[in-house]
């Protein structure tokens, strides 16, 4: 129903993203290229013991996860739907998406809404970290030994002092399998 409307909305959102984010397919390459020119800013968060980040310009907003409506019969990665100021947004449990264990019950859950070519998507994470700036020379593509689901969804790794930052590709991570 209403595909036209939807298209328009998406069009608008795409425009909002500005010129810096080319469409879908190219994005991974584009971000990788740019990375060598300047320092990049990442909004970081934690999943279990892992330190991950998404590029700041792809982040729409961050908040404490709210109640959501489950979608029966959908992939277990889909945590449900939320109402974000009148827009219905799909929520993905990033732990399940990336093949982590389920978080223990009663633990804190945060929401990061990222922009994708399919509209905004809400990602559930454990804890929010700082926004950090990383130097391009610290970047390295994903180690081959990384577990499949996780490896597929990240652009690569930044070797920070004392920790590794997994650079999440929002486009791929929002794709439910």
């Amino acid at each position: 129903m209403l595909t036209e409307t939807e298209e328009v909305e998406r069009e608008g959102e795409r425009r909002e993203q500005g010129a810096g984010t080319p469409d879908h397919g190219d994005r991974r390459i584009a971000t990788a290229d740019r990375r060598h020119e300047n320092n990049r800013q990442y909004a970081t968060f934690f999943l279990d013991t892992h330190y991950l980040g998404v590029e700041v310009e792809n982040v729409q907003e961050v908040f404490t996860a709210k109640e959501m409506t489950p979608v029966p019969l959908s992939s277990s990665m889909v945590a449900g739907l939320i109402n974000l100021r009148g827009h219905i947004i799909m929520t993905i449990d990033l732990r399940r998406r990336l093949g982590f264990e389920d978080r223990p019950p009663e633990s804190e859950v945060m929401s990061i809404v990222v922009r994708t070519s399919d509209g905004p998507v809400n990602l559930l994470v454990d804890r929010i970290g700082d926004v950090i700036e990383v130097r391009p020379d610290l970047f390295e593509s994903a180690p081959a030994t990384l577990e499949g689901r996780l490896k597929e969804a990240i652009d690569g790794v930044y070797k920070l002092e004392g920790s590794l930052l997994l650079a999440l590709n929002t486009e791929l991570a929002s794709e439910v399998m």
């Binding site: 129903m1 827009h87 219905i88």
Partner: peptide, 16 residues
Amino acid sequence: KPLSRQLKDLSYLAGA
């Protein structure tokens, strides 16, 4: 309201 493209396969679901 339209649903995410990824949920369109669910035949019982017309929207939200």
